[in-house]
Design a protein around this nucleic acid. Sequence first.
RNA 1: UCCUCGUUAGCUCAGUCGGUAGAGCGGGUGGCUGUUAACCACUAGAUCGACAGUUCAAGUCUGUCACGAGGAGCCA
Length: 463
Amino acid sequence: MSYLLLKDLFKRHGECMNTAVSVAGWVRTLRVSKNLGFIELNDGSFFSGVQIVFQDTLSNFEAVSKLGTGSAIAVTGTVVASPGKEQSFEIAATAIEIVGACDSDYPLQKKRHSFEYLRTIAHLRPRSNTFSAVFRVRSLLAHAIHSFFQDRGFVYVHTPIITGSDCEGAGEMFRVTTLDPKSPPLTEEGKVDFSKDFFGKETNLTVSGQLAVENFCMAFRDVYTFGPTFRAENSNTTRHASEFWMIEPEIAFAGIEEDMRLAEDMTKFIIRFVLERAPEEMKFFNAMIDKGLLERLEQVASSDFGRVTYTDAIDLLKKSGKTFDYPIEWGSDLQTEHERYLTEEVFKKPVFVIDYPKEIKAFYMRQNDDGKTVAAMDMLVPGIGELIGGSQREERHDRLLRRIEELGLKKEDYWWYLDIRRFGGCPHAGFGLGFERAVMYLTGMTNIRDVQPFPRTPKNAEF
RNA sequence: UCCUCGUUAGCUCAGUCGGUAGAGCGGGUGGCUGUUAACCACUAGAUCGACAGUUCAAGUCUGUCACGAGGAGCCA
């Protein structure tokens, strides 16, 4: 049993004209009158479906006429020119096999459903136009990211999902344990005795692969991680999920300049990659989800990104004469409204903001000579604000140690991270990109729950 | 976690001044020879999120809770 994929039929329908084909897929809509009917069939290989025309000469015309949306069928027929306005060709069926009937309470209708409702039927929503497009683009984007880094010789590092390090410092973690929650073994002080736990110590799901990947960077030079990360934060927003994927490249013998060039090149590459390989899906998003999407992406892919220091950015915002909901002051972090103003109004293209005050950035970022700022960079893009955050890392052992102590962190927790500064340390830099945020940026979708196949958010792990 | 809004048929929603429930789509039945979210006719389908309270009377007013959405904080 072998069926022609609709992807291939659409690619070469000219040469298929007037030949016999067999296709298999799911009924999207069905319209029937006394002696003939029309089925829109989608087989998942292509965004568009093909129209099947069937006559009452079919042996099972009655049964086929009663099929509901969602049914799985296999069709044999002839590719013919279509007299209809909405398609240039169609398949005149000679036989239709009902592979899997669909109960009449199938929840997906021909009309538009709310995204909110579709989230409650996450097992069925990939059959809808929007989610079909979203998840094909998500898949392509993952491919694009691997292609970009692999083509440049980066080594893909699988950093651990379960981590014994409680110092990743990026947020609340999910504990991993096999201890009995009702009566865990206790120490003499009455605390939970994790030495009796599976790993002999407290373990959690990772919140970031960065610290681990820095170690491999000191061996392979250019590396990246791309995998799931977990945050047990009770945040209920359109941009946060408890489980999400992150891309974290790290480059050795390189500083913040090389880091920005890498971020810019990667951004342009993945945009072009997806525009080339999913033109139907991208046109759909531009028409149905976000009217300015294609124009914005084309512009980003073809412009040279701007550069501005945090200090200059603050001046630009102050001089803008625009009133913001949040005050602008040196030392406080840029709000989304500030970021968007900079990239959309001032620069009118993506822009890197560099050299942030050290107080508002992470301990591992390289301290600048002014004693006030660190070599951090945020890449701001029109439409959403910050898309990428990165930095040159502090490679000087004494400086890093002092910063750890200043912030009251426990240096014992960082022994291996500090070690790589003693054993052949060198300047290095990297950045982090939330994969879902990249999917949202490329599709125009505005809720992270709608770009993950089965999203995990506070109080929700149904599927 | 905080603020705001919401929860009525399978779905999307309407429901006036407090007086006992409506539409479209979907489902079912029938009709129709070229449809494009087909069309036409008929039909079934509702503990109005839950629990209290006010009232002769609550989908409608009040309180609590649950769930959802948007925004904020935090961040990716």
